[in-house]
Design a protein around this nucleic acid. Structure first.
Lengths: 230, 230
DNA sequence: TAATAGTGTTGATATATATCAATTTTAGTT
DNA sequence: AACTAAAATTGATATATATCAACACTATTA
């Protein structure tokens, strides 16, 4: 089912902040070399191990970036929202994706030839700097996650995850996270059973409201306290 | 005790691979704007939270990059060897270091004004690309660590750490790691007591030889097996 | 409509690992 | 050489969290 999502990159309301550093011609170059595609919930957009021939620009929907770990266990590195350009760091290392990207909702994305982006990095130093900025930002996010995973207990990690989704992804204290308990576990570093038990605990203590995949934070100060101390 | 380590960057035998992308004048610019300094084992080179006014080039010695986590618990992100440029990702985000750097042995380093490096990123697109490459590589390392920390058990993590030190840092199966048990724990995500017990276990099973801070891997296939399965 | 597979839930149990406390060893300092 | 402080070691115990197993609930498909 092919669906045209927007005619040009220029009009795309949710364009990557770094695209602002491009000239009109440069943006045009991307515009003529992009391949839009639509994905249904659950579909894989690109797969760990595959060549990084294209970067993916997410124009609508929510997706998960995840690594396939040992014996089938995944770890969700990040949830991405529209306006993100996902160009795996493997691009500049071994031309392989080191993580997979999959849609959590109906999603529309554009594939952009990585060679074009690399060319633009060479031609436009502001764009290169923006790219560095983007990569740095993501890098810091991973550091944070590493500390959180290795030093916080489940309660703290779940609280942190829920707050992060509210503040940085959905911009609301009530949101449909579009993740199964299993995925919430992969996101916060615990088993699905533990997610169920903790969510129930938070619910019983009136910190959150639960309705299937919809989470509403009703006592944020308390949740923040758990995030910090736990 | 000031000690002159080498007269110019050009002659510095262990220069950062990305410096090769600079012209002679550009390298000169760095050369005239660097501040060499020497550190004793244990001394902090820069501190988490401080401004990223300078990047640090490690010209000799071994150092640790570590994050200060919750209630005084650290996590060692990486061990760095001569030839590395350490410019925290905070440089392009909030101008703050998000981790600390401390010497594990006598160390000589050069401080390089970050403004110069940023300028060079603008002037020289090959340098910018090299910078992106470096950052990407480090990013992948962190991803790997995240998976390892969240999915492997202690045995596997310790085995992985020991092999990484042998293969990527010291280039020998026998090395002085210059880390206390506490630090080895911060490096592999466990307590110092666990490090002691596991090292003894590996020793008893004749996988490694131990002599204070010197570790010799004597049964690498077995250690690799533990790294993969554990 | 039945059937199957995925998801959520609950409770019982196992286990990896941290914590605590005590002791020994090592290294650095007066 | 004596003294201190830090590091290493060891054993006993606590605890967080995973694992396992059973069952309920959707939701899709045959």
């Amino acid at each position: 089912m092919f669906k045209e999502n927007h005619t040009t990159c220029k009009n795309c309301s949710c364009s990557w902040s770094n695209f602002k550093n491009l000239t009109d011609e440069q943006l045009d170059l991307i515009n003529t070399n992009r391949f839009p595609a639509n994905f249904k919930s659950g579909e894989i957009i690109f797969k760990q191990g595959s060549p990084t021939s294209n970067a993916v620009f997410l124009s609508s929907g929510i997706a998960k970036i995840y690594m396939e770990g040992y014996d089938g266990k995944n770890i969700i590195l990040a949830i991405v929202k529209p306006g993100s350009l996902i160009a795996g760091p493997g691009t500049y290392v071994d031309n392989r994706h080191h993580y997979s990207l999959a849609a959590l909702t109906e999603t529309s994305a554009c594939f952009i030839d990585m060679r074009i982006l690399k060319e633009l990095v060479h031609e436009n130093s502001m764009f290169a700097e923006g790219y560095l900025k983007d990569l740095s930002q993501k890098s810091l996010g991973t550091f944070h996650k590493l500390v959180s995973f290795s030093q916080k207990k489940m309660h703290g990690r779940l609280a942190e995850g829920l707050i992060h989704l509210a503040d940085d992804i959905f911009n609301s204290d009530k949101y449909n996270c579009h993740m199964t308990r299993q995925e919430l576990g992969e996101f916060t570093g615990m088993t699905k059973e533990s997610v169920v038990r903790l969510l129930k605990e938070f619910h019983d203590e009136e910190i959150i409201h639960l309705n299937d995949h919809t989470i509403e934070i009703i006592n944020k100060p308390k949740l923040e306290k758990i995030m910090i101390s736990g």
